[in-house]
Amino acid sequence: MSNSFIEQVHYIRIPVKNLERSAHWYRDVLGLQLVNLTEELAVIKVNEGPFLLILIPTEDVTFAHFTINQEQEFSIGFTSPELAKFHQHLLDHQVKVDDIKEDNGHAFFHFYDLDGNMLQAHW
């Protein structure tokens, strides 16, 4: 098959414990746009593109990341052209943040939302 029926990724769903608190964290700390907040979900827009994060409330112990050999691996990566400033911004807001690492000219760090979902920022 030479052409895909899929045009783009539209959204990723992220499990959270307190929907309203998490929606405001993604808006206020990450600077993303809160488009809609209901009892069932929160819709977060990532800048001007078509990509959305959908926060889904759950009482289950579950995360938007996974493990390989018992080590956490992120599922969602964000680009940030001002990586060091973003890193400091997260630290200033008491976000759990790993150190900035560099691998062959590629800089990145991992950080965690209020529910422990592991995310990555890179440039």
Rank of each mutant, 00 (worst) to 15 (best):
A107G: 01
Y112R: 06
S22V: 02
Q70H: 11
H24P: 01
H87I: 02
D103H: 10
E48K: 09
F66R: 12
G31Y: 06
L55S: 07
N3H: 12
T79G: 10
I68F: 10
G105I: 03
I76S: 09
N117C: 06
S80W: 00
I54D: 02
T38F: 02
H89M: 05
H110G: 07
T79I: 12
R13S: 15
P15R: 05
P81V: 03
T79V: 12
Y112S: 05
P15F: 03
D99S: 14
I44K: 03
P15I: 06
I44T: 11
V9G: 06
H93R: 12
E59H: 10
I44M: 05
E73N: 12
A84S: 15
V16M: 07
W25C: 10
E71Y: 09
K96Q: 14
W25Y: 12
G49T: 12
A84Y: 06
K17T: 12
L52S: 07
L55Q: 07
N117M: 06
F5C: 07
H65I: 05
W25L: 08
I56A: 10
V16K: 01
L114C: 05
F51V: 13
V46P: 02
T38V: 06
V61F: 04
A64S: 15
L119Q: 05
V9N: 08
Y26M: 07
I100M: 09
K17H: 11
P57N: 10
N18E: 15
A42I: 02
G31L: 03
L55R: 03
Q8W: 02
L90G: 13
D92Y: 01
H65R: 05
V16H: 06
E71D: 13
H89E: 11
I76E: 08
D28W: 00
I6Q: 12
Q94C: 09
R13Y: 01
N69D: 15
E102I: 06
A121L: 03
N117L: 09
K45W: 00
M118I: 01
T79Q: 13
D115G: 10
T58S: 14
G31F: 05
H87P: 08
D60Q: 14
I100Q: 09
V61K: 13
F63G: 05
I76R: 03
L55V: 03
A23P: 11
F108V: 00
Y11T: 05
F78E: 11
Q72A: 14
R21I: 11
L91Y: 01
T38R: 04
K96R: 14
Y11L: 06
N3P: 00
V43H: 07
T67H: 11
Y26W: 13
Q72F: 08
N18Q: 14
N3K: 11
I100A: 09
K96N: 12
V95K: 03
P15Y: 05
D28Y: 00
E7D: 14
P15N: 11
K45H: 13
